[in-house]
Amino acid sequence: MEGVASAASPAKLSVRGLTKYYDDLEVLSDIAVDVADGEFVSIVGPTGCGKTTFLRIVDGLEPFDAGEVSIDGRQVTKPGPDRAFVFQADSLQPWRTVWSNAAIGLEIQGRLTGAERERLNRLLELVGLKGFERYYPRQLSGGMRQRVNLARALAVHPEVLLMDEPFAALDAQTREIMQTELLRIWSAAKSTVLFITHQIDEAIYLSDRVLVFSRRPGRLQEDIAIDLPRPRDPSVKRTPKFSEYVGHIWNLIESAVRESVMEETVVHS
C-alpha cells in the first residue's frame, strides 16, 4: 500500500519535481511524493541528502528552483498557519514561561482567543506538561522542553506537522519514551506528519511510510509502506517483521552512508 492520491482521497501534501540548488550544488533532485491526510511519514537518509532542506522547503522557510509543493491543492511559498515546524534544537524563548512559549504561534498569528487559551491548556495536559505552565525553559529537562516545542507546534492546529529530528538531542531512554508519547499525541491530534530522523528503528516504529533519500543530490530512493498494526507499543520493535524493515532500509542507505563517511575522511586527511 502506498499513500497514493486518488480522486476519492486527494493528497494532503503533494510534491512534484522538486529541485533545489545551493549555488551550483544540486541538493534536491526531482522529488515527487504524496502524503495523505493524517499519515505519519518519516524521512531517512545519509547526512547531506537534503532531508532537512526538503522539510524546510515544505514549511516555506526556503525557496526552491523547480517543481511545486502544494497543500490541499494550494501552492506553498512561505510559512503559513497550515503548517508548523518542530526544530531539533529547542528554540524556546528563555524569557517566556512554558505556557507563553506554547502560545507564541497563536500569538504571532493573531489567534489567541479565549477558546484557544482553553484548548492550549488541554494541549499542554495532553503533552504531559500539566502543572508546569508557569515554569521557565531553563528549569526543564531536554525532554520536557521538546514537549513544549511540540505543544507550541500543535497549538496552531497545523494541517501538516513537520519535525526535524526532534529527539536527536535526547538521551536514548528519554527518546524511547518520547516516541511513544508522540504516537499517543498524534493519534489524538490527527495531524499529517513529516518526520526526519537518523534512527531507522525510530522511523519504522512511528510511521505509516518511510521515505528513503539517496546521497546528494537527494533523490527519493524508495517509498516503503510500513505494514505494522496500530496502535503500536515498543514491543513491536522486537518482532521479526520489524527487523525485516530495518534490514531492508539499512541495505538501501548503507552503501551511501559508507561513501559519505569515507568522503569525509578523505576530505579531512
Partner: peptide, 11 residues
C-alpha cells in the same frame, strides 16, 4: 534559532 522559530509561524 529563535528568529527562525518565529518565522516558521509566519511572523
Amino acid at each position: 534559532q529563535l528568529i527562525e522559530a518565529a518565522r516558521s509561524f509566519g511572523a
